[in-house]
Design a protein around this nucleic acid. Structure first.
Lengths: 238, 238
DNA sequence: CAGTGGTCTAGACCACCAA
DNA sequence: TGGTGGTCTAGACCACTGA
């Protein structure tokens, strides 16, 4: 474990255990450097992470204030997968793999996914049940040359866990887009929608590996009243 | 201008001018440190910002890759106000101030906004026109003890510009939430909705100052088919 | 004013990557 | 293996906040 990670973890725990309470000041950077027997730069690296995670707010010439952390629920932001969400929130839920196929990328799919023309990809359609009702429909395209031997069983569990832990693929970032679409035939067929539902929330993601190759394209369609997205936004000074 | 800002700006321009093209490698950190006559730490601070802004992707042991920047349109993320968006995107648009009033924060409003009970606040309702149609409805609550003498004229222009540039208020971060609501009576009355529209996108923001005081609460209601939200999400390793 | 966080330097060693 | 980015140090000066 790296030194700055140790500091982050320790401060996180102290915040969650209310040793440092909401609106408290953390010890100064010099003080923390002494406490952790580190340089100030290392402490600052740790504080930067706490700030990005929305746990503290730093103030020039004053100190680092602890932010209310009760409000920090349910960040769909940050590339979190369904399985992770589900376990961390303790939902009653199930995943059904509707389609598990392979496909050659044609012109249209290449434009959509960013994959090379004529490359081979998995095409997976899954629907996810929350509290007994199918509320989310996920369509995934994954490049076969990277995703190795994906199976239906893995798709039923967590694809991300498999890619990152088993294949050691380095997933770096995603370009996400949220829009509201009209309900499609397919949505009606596969999700438990009420007849009055005309709209659906669509979250499209292009997922890239560390070396910048487009690796996955996902469209996730959520029943409108089950969707919620939260994030901490910091004002960009520059 | 700080040294790392100079480096960021310079590299940004070189990327936008295609001197460094998509999928190119930037010069190494040591090389850049030489070029800008700075330390490596300063170069790294600049590269960190470029990475957070989605312009490059850094890779351990390899280098910093330039990411496609054509995809970077319309980030509502990052606390951007309507006026900024409008000017940066060149929309034809207009803002109408429907309500400009003052209000004492009661129990209910205190819970909603986080403002102290019995404090004084501005209550502003604005509707925004894009291409001749009212598509966005903004309801703002701003604490009067911070927002000084706000006027209807300022509200018609940009409140943020006034607060930051004129009052020098230090807006630090916002907790945002996106949900889909049912269309309300008020929405129907003030927005140009079609009779079939049943849903509306609601973006709620709690805005905080640098010293962590809740300062503004905004609910922004967007016509469903005019709403689009994009962001770059990085996978959290920790 | 003393103390805080923000910027910056010049070094060091390590972990990773491609050839 | 040589070059890359990732971590870390020990120091310096500056800009800002509060009393």
């Amino acid at each position: 474990m790296k030194k700055y990670e140790i500091i982050v973890t320790d401060l996180e725990q102290k915040i969650f255990k209310d040793i440092y309470k909401e609106n408290d000041l953390l010890p100064s950077e010099n003080e923390l450097a002494k406490q952790y027997a580190s340089s100030r730069a290392t402490v600052r690296q740790a504080l930067k992470i706490l700030e990005e995670n929305g746990l503290i707010q730093r103030r020039h010439g004053y100190g680092s204030i602890v932010i209310s952390h009760e409000k920090l629920l349910f960040p769909i932001s940050g590339l979190t997968s369904f399985k992770e969400l589900q376990t961390s929130l303790g939902f009653q839920s199930k995943t059904e793999v509707t389609i598990f196929g392979e496909i050659t990328i044609n012109q249209e799919l290449s434009a959509l996914t960013g994959f090379p023309l004529n490359s081979e990809a998995y095409h997976i359609l899954r629907r996810r049940q929350i509290d007994g009702k199918f509320t989310v429909l996920d369509r995934d395209f994954l490049r076969k040359d990277f995703a190795g031997n994906l199976t239906k069983e893995i798709a039923q569990d967590s694809i991300y866990a498999y890619l990152e832990n088993t294949l050691n693929l380095d997933i770096a970032y995603a370009q996400k887009e949220i829009t509201i679409d009209f309900v499609s035939e397919e949505d009606l067929e596969l999700l438990d929608l009420t007849p009055q539902d005309r709209h659906i929330v669509s979250v499209k993601s292009h997922v890239y590996l560390a070396d910048n190759t487009p690796f996955q394209y996902t469209e996730s369609r959520h029943q409108v009243d089950k969707f919620r997205f939260t994030e901490i936004a910091r004002r960009q000074k520059r």
